[in-house]
Design a binder for these strands. Sequence first.
DNA 1: AACGCGACCTGCGAGC
DNA 2: TGCTCGCAGGTCGCGT
Length: 332
Amino acid sequence: MPELPEVEVVRRGLVSWVRGRTITSVDVLDPRSIRRHALGAGDFAGNLEGARVVDVVRRGKFLWLPLEEAAAVHPRTDTADGIPVHAVEGNARPPVALMAHLGMSGQLLMQDSAVPDEKHLKIRLRLSPAEGMPEQLRFVDQRIFGGLFVTSLVPTADGGPGGLGESPAPLIAEEAAHIARDPLDPHFSFDSFYRRLRIRKTGLKRALLDQGLVSGIGNIYADEALWRARLHYARPTDTLRRSEALRVIDAARDVMLDALDAGGTSFDSLYVNVNGASGYFDRSLNAYGRESQECRRCAAAGIVSLMKREQFMNRSSYTCPVCQPRPRNGRW
DNA sequence: AACGCGACCTGCGAGC
DNA sequence: TGCTCGCAGGTCGCGT
């Protein structure tokens, strides 16, 4: 569910509440939410308890909290041979982070201890007391496509910052290293994106959703960006002119910034910020979810055109048949 | 390399 | 009332 703007809303909300605080205890209430943490709940908790949160960093839809060890009092779970993992790796443990991916329905909520557990509460982190701040950071996830795990921080491939945080983040969470920079990243390179786009043999929307090519864009903002750029989702990427590619990337950036201003897109209580509030960008959507409604751009020009919904990549795509015509015979 | 599909999950609304 | 079906913001891995 959450795409870049929704994750960024969470990042911004989270940072003022957690930065500088120490994780004092961890409850894993559903192990499925840490399935990407291969060594299990004990190791997960052992890595977090006693660690101080340094920042909250995001690239695309991935969010991570770089950690600083308070003291080496929480060794990792032993290996199969009974040797502590960090002892095998050497005396200095590599820097780690608490990684979060919200999947389709994940939420990170700051809550006071008095607040009853949410129905789909999966993981609870208790934080060191801080004046006027909630004690708990809760991970709530209905569909369990998201999750938390501890990962190493590694240098980036291009030498630039790993992601967007409050302070410079020179490293990147290992599991986010395979994804490209997102359009809101100051180090995003359009030239490099366009070069890679042109050698792909695929359709434009598939490329926009490929997190390895450009990250942060999901089904909603892909349709919105294509609508704003007046391009069809099936447009072959190897026929895209530079100006057209620039148009769709600029559109993606613009629509995501607009959504950020509105606090993100929510259709229901599944997407909320860290305080439990919904965003209201759904009212500003021009394509997504507007099947059989008039295309607003065409209507403004005095043309009646109804938005169309089609199945594409096993999900819905919304287009205006008039201002986003389907490419003919692979040409544009 | 690209693509289609299933898997991973729960819940909601529509239709019968 | 209750059943089944289709659908939902994402990612990963497998087969072809």
